[in-house]
């Protein structure tokens, strides 16, 4: 379930959410297309500096990085052996290549650097503010609506899921590796889909009753303060520096 970390108070928490979104977006794009290790290492260092400034609990940060790194572990199993190049080591008949290892390392650093800044963004801003900031940044209305509704109803659907699971347990259901289990889970997922769609219909009706004509209005207003402008310029300069480092092959 979503646990918000928006509680803390630091420079990053106070920053205008629009600044944060723009910076995270540009940072992610530049890091994703970079290939040089020196750039990637600087990017990772920069993202860790941001974590320090935001004073996030490190434990929580690591916990949230685990799912991404599960994928990356799989990459390390396959990439070194499927890439053509200079042999580096061998496991039985399989030969790991130099290029393959480098490639896997690049992906690991890139995705961790990007995930860390994303986690800081989400952890230092309430979902609500994030949505409104997206709206202010002219993100299409429908995406912002989807974002809000997902946040609002994921809890309701989760509760419905728990209710169904409990009802199954109460009648002695124990999952195993058999047809009965698969069928039951299929029913569970199907039932959740049907219920969600019914729910969506009722929510729409309730909104129509209150005069909904396709517009959601935001009640919050944002204003850029001096520290927002300074942070924005600083971060843009650093991202630009990363970009220059990548494309001019300096250092």
């Amino acid at each position: 379930m979503i646990v918000e970390l928006a509680g803390g108070d630091s420079l990053i928490h106070r920053l205008d959410p629009r600044v944060k979104i723009v910076v995270v977006f540009l940072f992610s794009v530049v890091v994703a297309v970079s290939d040089r290790f020196v750039v990637l290492m600087w990017a990772l260092a920069l993202s860790l500096c941001i974590v320090l400034v935001a004073r996030l609990p490190i434990k929580e940060l690591i916990r949230r990085l685990i799912p991404v790194n599960m994928f990356i572990v799989f990459l390390w199993f396959f990439l070194p052996f499927t890439f053509e190049g200079e042999p580096l080591f061998s496991v039985g008949p399989l030969v790991g290549t130099h290029e393959g290892v480098l490639y896997a390392a690049r992906i690991s650093i890139k995705s961790n650097a990007i995930m860390v800044v994303l986690i800081v963004l989400v952890a230092s801003t309430s979902i609500l503010t994030l949505g409104h900031a997206m709206h202010e940044l002219r993100v299409p209305k429908k995406i912002v609506h989807l974002f809000f509704f997902t946040y609002r109803y994921i809890h309701v659907i989760h509760r419905e899921y728990l209710r169904l699971v409990n009802a199954m347990k109460a009648r002695g259901f124990r999952p195993g590796t058999n047809m009965h289990t698969y069928k039951t889970y299929a029913y569970l997922v199907g039932m959740l889909l049907v219920r969600s769609s019914d729910r969506a219909e009722r929510v729409r009706n309730a909104m129509l009753c209150r005069g909904f004509r396709g517009n959601l209005y935001s009640l919050s207003t944002f204003s850029m303060k001096r520290e927002d402008v300074i942070s924005l310029i600083l971060m843009l300069a650093l991202i630009l520096a990363l970009g220059v480092l990548e494309w001019t092959k300096m250092v």
Binding site: I127, L128, G131, F148, F149, Y151, R152, Y153, V203, A206, M207, R210, G211, F212, R213, N215, L216, Y217, L219
Partner: peptide
Amino acid sequence: FSPTVLEDVAFGPLN
């Protein structure tokens, strides 16, 4: 359906 109470109550008047 809104995240906060105030926004939800204000939704109708805004419409």
